[in-house]
Simulated assay, not measured.
Amino acid sequence: MAGADANGAQVKSAVRTVELLEFFAGRPGMHTLAAVQEAVGYPKSSLYMLLRTLVELGWVETDATGTRYGIGVRALLVGTSYIDGDEVVAAARTTLDRLSDDTTETVHLARLDGTSVVYLATRQSQHHLRPFTRVGRRLPAHSTALGKALLATWDDEQVRRLLPESLPAVTERTITDRERLIEELGTVREQGYAVDREENTLGLRCFAVAIPYRTPARDALSCSVPAARLTPGHEQLIKDALFDARDRLTLATRRL
């Protein structure tokens, strides 16, 4: 029994370590011990010891006073190794370059992770007015074209099991009703692409297609463009370029 208790304690410590790192990853900047404790709910004494251990190992950093904590450089190294070792990211590089040239807009490769999408690769727009994006950024699937393109490869019951009935609003245009979202996913399946109509960022529209190298799909390509610059002709060019990119990347990932 003692051995079982020790193993249980080790597993609990591992879970808390991961939860702490996810807390810092989702909240950039530095945080006081009290703020961290309020968010995660661990006893302050054990939380402090765990934070000190993570600081010593480089997973967590402190400010000059030693009283505020944030994500450490080792997390970046692990995240980079994930990107560097991912076969889809490697296969998509040429496709992303061409998609960027064809559209002159910001383009992304992203992966579905639970109820979110995570950016794996991006190419910045050639225009002065452009959205800010970064690899590793996590956004709600229901408010993004990327997420909707991927959710459309699931059946309706799978979507109902994944998402709550009421969805959080990111902007005033976000779809917040699950059934309404499911209706839109039906349209996405019919037309082959998804649209974010300023649902994640006001003033920004986005178009996305899923990459069907597996079913349901887990990766998608997108193109983001400021609404002020989007003309009917440019919109059609973006859609055509995305379909072409989807076909090329599907071919490149056929053995994965």
Rank of each mutant, 00 (worst) to 15 (best):
A9K: 13
A9M: 14
Q10T: 11
Q10D: 15
V11Q: 13
V11G: 05
K12V: 07
K12R: 12
S13I: 06
A14E: 05
A14Q: 03
T17H: 02
L20D: 03
L21T: 04
F23W: 06
F23Q: 02
F23M: 04
F23H: 07
A25Q: 09
A25S: 11
G26Q: 13
R27Y: 02
R27I: 01
P28C: 10
P28R: 11
G29I: 06
G29H: 05
G29E: 04
M30H: 11
H31R: 05
L33G: 04
A35F: 10
V36E: 05
V36D: 05
Q37W: 02
E38T: 05
A39N: 03
G41A: 14
Y42H: 06
P43Y: 00
P43T: 08
P43Q: 09
K44F: 06
S45M: 06
S46D: 12
Y48N: 03
Y48W: 05
Y48G: 04
M49P: 15
M49V: 15
L50S: 02
L50N: 03
L50C: 06
L51N: 00
R52V: 09
R52K: 12
T53G: 02
L54A: 01
L57G: 12
G58T: 06
G58W: 02
V60P: 00
E61N: 07
T62S: 09
D63S: 06
A64N: 00
G66A: 11
G66P: 11
G66I: 07
T67V: 15
R68G: 14
G70H: 04
G70P: 07
V73C: 08
R74I: 13
L76P: 10
L76A: 14
L77E: 13
G79V: 00
G79R: 03
T80P: 13
T80C: 15
S81I: 13
S81R: 15
Y82C: 10
Y82R: 15
I83N: 08
D84A: 13
D84N: 14
D84C: 13
V88R: 01
V88M: 07
A90Y: 04
A90R: 08
A91S: 11
A92C: 10
T94F: 07
T95L: 04
L96E: 00
L96Q: 00
L96P: 00
L96D: 01
D97F: 03
D97Y: 05
R98M: 10
R98D: 08
L99I: 01
L99Q: 00
D102C: 08
T103D: 14
T104I: 12
E105G: 10
E105K: 10
V107K: 04
V107E: 05
H108S: 09
H108P: 09
L109W: 00
